[in-house]
């Protein structure tokens, strides 16, 4: 396919595909495993309730339900384990990149001059594991916002300072 265009020589543009991504804190793996276990437990409760209320006291139904739950749990745990190695962020001069996902892979790029505000959040579980979640808001609605969970506190704080510094700068001059 011929992609050379009259607009601009794209090979001289900064290249997204050559960026080195920084990893999240290794504790993120623990966090996502705990979360997967919680949702697996939740599913166990749902399946149990379904069996009780629909009164499926048949051996094969129960066996099927247990098998289903085991497969689901296995999948959730595997996904939680794998996620870590697929996540990464990179700061460039004018934008921030974030990649994630095992089944659905995504690569998001947000220019600093589009960022409205930055937030560092932590829940009780994250507090325990010394993790922080960085949220970046643009004007493009929730779909275009960026949230990076599983950062070390100092990592998150650095990012927050750096990004809010950058957002401020663009308005100057």
């Amino acid at each position: 396919m011929d992609f050379t265009n009259e607009l601009i020589d794209w090979s001289r543009l900064p290249q997204v595909q050559e960026v080195q991504f920084a990893r999240l804190s290794t504790n993120f793996r623990v966090l996502s495993m705990i979360r997967a276990s919680i949702s697996s437990f939740f599913w166990a409760v749902v399946i149990l309730l379904a069996i009780i209320f629909i009164q499926l006291w048949d051996f094969y139904y129960i066996l099927g339900a247990i098998l289903f739950w085991l497969i689901l749990t296995g999948f959730l745990l595997l996904r939680a384990w794998k996620l870590f190695s697929f996540k990464g962020y990179a700061l460039r001069e004018h934008d921030m990149l974030y990649k994630s996902g095992w089944i659905w892979k995504r690569l998001v790029a947000v220019p600093y001059n589009r960022i409205q505000h930055v937030e560092v959040r932590r829940g009780p579980l994250e507090e325990l594991l010394e993790l922080r979640k960085l949220q970046i808001f643009t004007a493009g609605g929730s779909a275009s916002d960026l949230s990076i969970s599983g950062l070390a506190p100092e990592q998150a704080e650095q990012l927050r300072l750096f990004i809010s510094e950058k957002t401020g700068l663009d308005e100057e001059e």
Binding site: Q116, H117, V118, E119, V120, R121, R122, G123, P124, E127, R160, S164, T167, G168, E171
Partner: peptide, 15 residues
Amino acid sequence: QGVFRRSQSSVSVAR
């Protein structure tokens, strides 16, 4: 803000 879920936001005054 926040009790169980703490959050720190910063928004540039220009924004």
